[in-house]
Each structure stands twice: as structure tokens, then as C-alpha cells.
Design a binder for these strands. Structure first.
Length: 525
RNA sequence: GGGCCUGUAGCUCAGCGGUUAGAGCAGGGGACUCAUAAUCCCUUGGUCGUGGGUUCGAAUCCCGCCGGGCCUACCA
């Protein structure tokens, strides 16, 4: 039975540096999906947050001689500031230093330890003293040696705790085989299947001795160790959803009801952290904890933004994209529209400033903004802004407009079911183009000159204004403020709790008085 | 080394075995005036990265090569 809640999460960002366009894209996509589901009447819970622990945070903090928490908090503030800039509306904030989260992580570790899923073992390997980490063959350079960037490399032994990943690999293979929609899109699911086929049954090291990493969650059964990355970070998806909140009630203020939310409808992640973290460790952790197959979350894997030459964005290349400067030029919603329209969910895309410029002036200023403006201006000139609802006139052009807008919700839903926001926008924009063509074909300025065409003019003006109301509804997930401004200008506001099921033709009453039209997206200078 | 994705008009992409390869934007021409010189109509433009192969038929399937990207299980 489908639940009427919709639980969506994103990866939680590492607080070692400031947010960039990739972080922004992921959180924005989640925001749009969340708003869309809400507009469909779902009770939505959108969780995002930050991963604050770990060695890099500890090292950076030491370098600046400040406490790790202070360092993490400072970067956390940059993320929050960015999310405000983008107008994100999330319901839960997962910061991994939160006491309730720590307590849940510890409770889970204890439970798995008691169940014999965690054991202690010794690892011998090459260790970089400077970087304070063990090195693997991947760190070797082309000559097969560890380069000077690692400093002094020595052979070292270390005891750690391991999680019995190997016990569950066969289960995971069977699960993935039986649940082809565990990962979206399909080609990523294929990638996972291939990765699992070649997988060795290796266990996962889940601790670090405090002697080299203190900035983490202490494991409950051995105070000399803290837990390492994934056992901390991945658990945020359940700890901040209210998991174990009765059993482990340290600080449960504001936590939702876990039973109502779980399983997550969407774990939105980047392609870089699918294998092994989210598609191997995470389902196995849940399975080991005792979650049944039907309580496994769904993964939605998105692609990356590259630069306009198709090359990776990176600090060292000097081609990073700062969202703030684009917001300054194109407005918050100009950037939101571009980031949602110019990439196919799951694929990579090239970030191109000329394309944002085009999207802003063509799609937003002209096709949408100017359409609203003309739709408001003609009633103002010819009818003192008052609409007549059931004018005694109809024809094929009118019917086409009504049909297009009454079928729009299902056509948008078809695309949104696969998170294809870009295609949903395309469908919406083709309806806007139809409106522009409609104005041209009906030529209201000509009708206005002929008294015999008065009823027809009434019907045209009504169809246009009503279409704009519907458009305001459909663009809302991507551009909530623009939707609001359209409603203001149309002098019609969707009532509280209005959903797509209420979106019927004829929302504007007879005698409706339209508001004043002002450009939604002023021309760029 | 292995896996997955990707290379199609100037740009961003769709098409993924079958009539003359499509869309949006940009470029060119025309119409119209309600509007943020806006909208509408028409139009220029491509040996589908490259070399082979399979097939009656390939952008579409297979193999090699070249370019771009992600992952490869204890470096978010």
C-alpha cells in the first residue's frame, strides 16, 4: 500500500571546504522534487545536512589552531547561507555532530557488535606519517612508488574494528537482482550489478584509533577508537528521520515519526558515491541491523556539471563555478531554472554562461514573462481588467488551449515520475508557446475593434488568463517566487492545501478582476 | 588493467535497426502590434568522432582506435 508521505534525502556535504555548483545542483534537485510531490498532495519530508567529522576537518582545524567543531561550524554556515541564497526549503537538517545522531550511531554499533557483526583485527600496510593515513596501490604513481607528496612512508601495523560486509554480499546480489529499481537510472543499476559480480568478499574497516583521529564518534565498546566515515555519515538518513528516538532519546526535539517516513523514496546522490558507499555499504548496514528487503530505500544517482569544454570543474583547474555570482546576475530563480532545464537527470552536463543568458532571456523573460504581460495588458486595455467567464463563444482554438492545460498535469507527472525535471519543463514550455501562438491567431487587438466580436474577445481573454493561472501552478516547484509573483499579478492565489487534484479549468470566477502587470524577468543589461 | 557513460547542425541536446536525420537557441527572410523590438510564420545549416564488420538496410548492433567523464570496495 503506498504511503502518502514522501521522504527525500541528499548526500550530506563534507564541511572541509565551501559549497560549489555541484553541491547546489543536488540540493536544488531535491528541493524541486520535494516541492513537486508536495503539490501533488504528498506529505513531504526533505532532509539534507552536513558531514562534520573526519580527518580532513581535524587537520584543517589544527592548522588554524581552532577547535574542530568551530572549524566545521564555520563551513557549515557557508552551506546554510548557500541554501538560503537558492531558496531551498528543507524540513530536517542533518549535522553529524548532533547528540541524538551520535547516540543512534553508537546504539547501532553496539547492536551490531553484540550480534557478532563487528570484530577486531590487525592490518599491516604502508603508512604516510605526513598525511596520517594508510596508503593503497591507488596512491602509487606511474613508477609504482609512493611519491614525495606523501612524505615519509613506513610500514605499520594497526588494530581496528571491522564490519562483516562479506557476510551479506550474497544477500545484496540477490536483492539487487530482484529489485531492478533499487537504483535509478537503469545504466547505474547495471554498473552496480557489474561491480558486485567482480566483488571480493572484503570486510569494512569502521574505526580509527584516537591516536590519529579524534574528531569522530567514539565507539561504545572501546573508548580508544572513533568510528570512521560511512558508519557515521550514512546513518544520518535514519537517525534524523527519527529512528530509535524512543529507545535512544538524547535530543529528539523536532524529529519526525520514523514509521511514517521510512523507507526513503529517494536518496539523491552523485555518481561518485554510489559504489561502494550507498549501493553496497548502506543496504548491507540496513540489512545487518535488521531492515527487511521491502524497507530498503531507493537511490537516485545524478551526474556532474563540467565546464563548457566538458572538463571537470576543479579548484586546481581554476574553472569552478560560484553560484552566488550567477544569482547576482540572473536572480535566484534564473539560476534555478537553468540548473533544472539544462541537464538530463542522471547525465552530466556542461555549465555554460551563454546558455544561462539564453535561458533567462528566451524562456523566462520572453516566452513566459512577456506572455504574462500581454495576457494582463489586453484585458486592461479592452475590459478594464475584468474577465467574463462563460462568454457565449467557443471554437477549436479555445478547445485546444483547454485541452492542453487540462492534460498538462498528467504529462508533467509522467516526466517527474522519473525525476526528469528538464523534460517536465519542456512540456510546460510547449504549453506556453501554444499560448503565444493562440494570441497571434486570435488577434485580440483586431477583435477589440469590432463590436460583433465582443463575446469572442471575452472568451480569448479568459482563456489566456486562466492558462496563466495554470502555468503559475506548474512552474512553482522550480520557481516558487515567480509563481507567487504571477499569482499576485493575476490577483488569484492558490488556497492553502491546493493540490494538482484541484487544478481544474475555470478557477477564475466570472467578473474576476486582474492585477497590474509588471515584467517578471527584466531584460539583462 | 577492469566496469559504466559519452562524442549527432555554430551551441545545448533528442533519435538508439527501416520512409528524404529532428527540437530549442544562435544566423537569414517575412508578418503583425496587445507586450519586457515582444510574438508568430518560413528558412540556411549535419560525409551522425574515426577505421573496419554484420545486415536487403546502421546515427542506431559488433570489434579496433582517438577524445571527454565517473567508479574500481580502509583517501567525503
Amino acid at each position: 500500500m503506498p504511503k502518502d508521505t514522501f521522504y527525500i534525502t541528499t548526500a550530506i556535504d563534507y564541511t572541509n571546504s565551501a559549497p560549489h555548483i555541484g553541491h547546489a545542483y543536488e540540493k536544488l534537485l531535491a528541493d524541486v522534487i520535494a516541492r513537486y510531490q508536495r503539490s501533488c498532495g504528498k506529505e513531504v519530508y526533505y532532509l539534507t545536512g552536513v558531514d562534520q567529522h573526519g580527518q580532513k576537518v581535524q587537520q584543517s582545524a589544527e592548522r588554524e589552531q581552532i577547535p574542530a567543531q568551530e572549524f566545521a561550524d564555520r563551513n557549515t554556515a557557508k552551506f546554510i547561507e548557500m541554501w538560503q541564497l537558492l531558496g531551498l526549503q528543507y524540513d530536517g537538517w542533518a549535522a553529524t555532530t548532533h547528540p541524538q545522531h551520535k547516540a543512534v550511531v553508537q546504539a547501532i554499533l553496539q547492536k551490531l557488535y553484540d550480534a557478532g557483526q563487528i570484530y577486531k583485527a590487525t592490518h599491516t600496510g604502508y603508512y604516510s606519517v605526513r598525511q596520517e593515513q594508510f596508503l593503497t596501490d591507488k596512491e602509487r604513481n606511474e613508477e609504482g612508488e609512493f611519491g614525495p607528496e606523501w612524505g615519509e612512508v613506513e610500514e605499520r601495523e594497526e588494530e581496528n574494528y571491522y564490519f562483516k560486509l562479506s557476510d551479506h554480499i550474497e544477500w545484496l546480489k540477490a536483492f539487487v537482482h530482484a529489485h531492478p529499481h533499487f537504483v535509478y537510472p537503469a545504466f547505474r543499476a547495471k554498473e552496480l550489478v557489474n561491480a558486485l559480480e567482480r566483488a571480493d568478499a572484503i570486510d569494512l574497516c569502521i574505526t580509527r584509533p584516537k591516536s590519529r583521529l579524534e574528531w569522530g564518534i567514539e565507539i561504545p565498546f572501546d573508548t580508544d577508537y572513533v568510528t570512521f566515515v560511512w558508519f557515521d555519515a550514512l546513518i544520518n538518513y535514519i537517525s534524523f528521520a527519527g529512528y530509535l528516538k524512543d529507545e535512544v532519546a538524547v535530543d529528539t526535539a523536532g524529529l519526525p515519526d520514523f514509521e511514517a517516513l521510512w523507507p526513503a523514496d529517494v536518496h539523491l546522490i552523485g555518481k561518485d558515491i554510489m559504489v561502494p558507499a550507498h549501493a553496497v555499504y548502506w543496504p548491507i548496514m540496513l540489512h545487518a541491523i535488521g531492515f527487511p528487503d521491502e524497507a530498503m530505500p531507493k537511490l537516485v544517482v545524478h551526474g556532474f556539471w563540467n565546464d563548457k569544454r566538458g572538463e571537470k570543474l576543479s579548484k586546481s583547474e581554476g574553472n569552478v563555478i560560484d553560484p552566488a555570482t550567477r544569482v547576482e546576475r540572473f536572480g535566484r530563480e534564473g539560476l534555478r531554472y537553468y540548473l533544472m532545464s539544462a541537464i538530463a537527470t542522471g547525465r552530466d552536463a556542461d555549465f555554460n554562461d551563454e546558455r544561462i543568458e539564453d535561458a533567462y532571456s528566451q524562456d523566462l523573460a520572453k516566452n513566459l514573462g512577456n506572455l504574462l504581460n500581454r495576457s494582463l495588458n489586453m484585458p486592461k486595455r479592452y475590459r478594464e481588467r475584468v474577465l467574463t467567464k462563460d462568454a457565449d463563444y467557443d471554437d477549436d482554438l479555445n478547445r485546444e488551449i483547454r485541452e492542453t492545460f487540462t492534460t498538462l498535469p498528467e504529462r508533467v507527472a509522467e516526466k517527474m515520475a522519473n525525476y526528469q525535471v528538464n523534460l517536465a519543463l519542456e512540456v510546460i514550455w510547449s504549453a506556453l508557446t501554444l499560448c503565444n501562438q493562440y494570441v497571434d491567431k486570435t488577434a485580440p487587438w483586431a477583435l477589440a475593434k469590432d463590436e460583433n466580436e465582443a463575446v469572442r474577445l471575452d472568451s480569448v481573454l479568459y482563456h489566456l488568463a486562466e492558462a496563466m493561472v495554470h502555468a503559475a501552478f506548474h512552474i512553482a516547484p522550480v520557481m516558487p517566487e515567480t509563481s507567487q509573483r504571477m499569482q499576485d499579478q493575476l490577483n488569484y492565489h492558490f488556497p492553502e492545501g491546493f493540490t494538482v487534484a484541484d487544478l481544474k479549468w475555470g478557477l477564475l470566477p466570472d467578473g474576476h478582476q486582474l492585477g497590474e502587470g509588471t515584467p517578471l524577468f527584466p531584460r539583462l543589461t
